[in-house]
Design a protein around this nucleic acid. Structure first.
Length: 488
RNA sequence: CGGGGUGUAGCGCAGUCCGGUUAGCGCGCGUCGUUCGGGACGACGAGGUCGGGAGUUCGAAUCUCCCCACCCCGACCA
């Protein structure tokens, strides 16, 4: 394995693959398109998960778990939904194997299922089949349930974290008495996603609504957060759907109002996935590897001891004790690396893994009462007294958190262009970047542009100003101001 | 599913065209020693049904046929 990563500007995708592997985040599973999330990668996901879990619990949501298996017929209940997912469903057709003649196994034809079972690509259908039982009165509403689960979508082209056949996510499914309430929920959750992305992952996002062609199959409206990756392509980082009464109709879920009328309930669903880990890598990584935002970093501070003999080793170890204790008391996730690799090797290794702060402690520091503190974001090294270090570390971590966000936002803004001619549009898209421009609202325009440039409408941003704008393609008055980009 | 490619040690590869002793190399791994403030070095060592099957041959990683797997490029997607 070569020591240097592939060049991030020329071979971004090679760079990504290597970072995922060499930072110890994930590996390929034995079945094509599957992913093994390794401990370091899983801690990262866990921290993201814990952060969001706290947010939804604080807003009245509760967790539950619904089955992996869904009757095949359920998917067909909602017309658009089935069309959207049919092509990528794994199907269970048999329930057992039997020994083969030559020491293998074959599917036992006798075990064929009467009704085949699909592996959930998303859980709307099972959940709404249950909601039908649980909802009778307006008193049962709103029903605010989330689940953390795996889902399977049989993808043709996969990449670790960004698109895998099986992935982990959370899916919220809520039921409400009124359309207004459902709409409020949809947007409230989108706001939580924005906070998760920006305040925790330090990934700046555009918020907005999807066009009809890009919306979730079965939704009335899909809202999203869209981020720009280091190669100037867009990544959809989270979606929140207003499902209207589509699933209530499909599963016949009604409730009695206060004045004893029977009405269909209103629904939302929303999800973020392990793709967020990919977003962090693609947003903050640099030529040395990962750079993790402190709030979600599995290890926030790594300590590299330096010594030449047993005497020095002991001196360093003792010297570190109070420092470790102080960090533990302030809730900092610190790790000492006592492996027998050389210090230089460790520096590179932990930089690859993206640990925000590194502390070096050697004989010279012990003698002077110092430590060396190095920032992963800027590479800057400073020599601090031990006491200063204890005091400065939380502040440095905060600095890095906001610094990474600011850096990413600046990069995104520099590469988001307002253009008014299709020529200019094509140039920007080809070079890489986001385009903000007018769109006449027609699906045909959208499809033609996609065909010609590979760029899609990532969203109609909430802060759009379509007045006076012309459509970039047709020249007609714009119905919306939209953001175009090539997407993952 | 179409087009292209690759299967040899944990990983990356050479050897295959032109069959011939004991199948190599780099990284990694193990033991010991010297190192250690930006990817250390030496010595010794472990590790292979050469993707699978059948065939040709005195002899097959190498030639022939069949099968399998995976990767890359085109139509879908969080």
């Amino acid at each position: 394995m070569s020591k240097k990563l592939p060049d991030r500007t020329n071979d971004f995708s090679g760079w990504y693959t290597q970072v995922v592997s060499r930072a110890g985040l994930a590996d390929h599973g034995p079945v094509k398109g599957t992913m093994v999330i390794k401990p370091y990668g899983f801690q990262l996901w866990d921290n993201i998960k814990e952060s969001f879990d706290a947010m939804i619990k604080a807003t009245g949501h509760v967790n539950a778990y619904f089955p992996l298996f869904i009757p095949k017929s359920f998917l067909a209940r909602e017309a658009e939904h089935v069309e959207g997912f049919a092509k990528e469903c794994a199907v269970v057709t048999h329930t057992r194997l039997k020994a083969d003649d030559d020491h293998g196994v074959v599917v036992d034809p006798e075990s064929k299922l009467e009704e085949e079972i699909i592996v959930r690509p998303t859980s709307e259908t099972v959940i709404w089949s249950m909601y039908k039982k649980w909802i009778q009165s307006y008193r049962d509403l709103p029903l605010l349930i989330n689940q953390w689960a795996n889902v399977v979508r049989w993808e043709m082209r996969t990449r670790l974290f960004l698109r895998t056949s099986e992935f982990l996510w959370q899916e919220g499914h809520t039921a409400h008495a009124t359309a207004e309430e459902a709409q409020t929920e949809t947007l409230d959750i989108l706001e939580l996603y924005r906070q998760l992305a920006e305040d925790y992952l330090a990934v700046p996002v555009f918020t907005g609504v999807k066009t009809d062609s890009e919306k979730f199959a079965g939704a009335n409206k899909t809202y999203c957060i869209e981020a720009m990756m280091g190669d100037k392509r867009a990544l959809q980082a989270g979606t929140s759907h207003n499902l209207g009464q589509n699933f209530a109709k499909a599963f016949d879920v009604t409730f009695q109002t206060k004045d004893n009328k029977e009405e269909l309930v209103w629904a939302t669903s929303w999800g973020v996935s392990t793709r967020l880990v990919g977003a962090v890598i693609l947003t903050h990584g640099d030529q040395k590897g990962l750079r993790l935002p402190p709030r979600i970093a599995p290890i926030q501070v790594v300590i590299i001891p330096i010594f030449r003999n047993e005497e020095q080793e002991k001196a360093v170890k003792d010297y570190l004790l109070p420092l470790m204790e102080a960090m533990e008391n302030s809730g900092i996730r610190a790790h000492q690396d006592w492996t027998d690799n050389s210090p230089g090797f460790k520096f590179n290794e932990w930089e690859m893994k993206g640990v925000p702060l590194r502390i070096e402690v050697g004989p010279r520091d012990v003698e002077k009462g110092n430590v060396v503190v190095a920032r992963r974001d800027s590479g800057e090294k400073s020599f601090l007294s031990k006491e200063e270090a204890v005091e400065q570390i939380p502040k440095l971590l905060d600095d890095i958190q906001t610094g990474l966000f600011e850096q990413a936002r600046q990069f995104r803004d520099e590469n988001t262009h307002i253009v008014s001619t299709y020529d200019k549009f094509k140039k920007v898209i080809q070079k890489g970047g986001f385009v903000r421009c007018g769109w006449d609202g027609s699906e045909k325009t959208e499809a033609t542009i996609k065909d010609q440039t590979k760029a899609t409408i990532r969203c109609i941003p909430f802060d759009e100003h379509p007045d006076g704008l012309m459509c970039i393609f047709s020249g007609d008055p714009a119905k919306h101001e939209v953001i175009f980009a090539k997407a993952y």
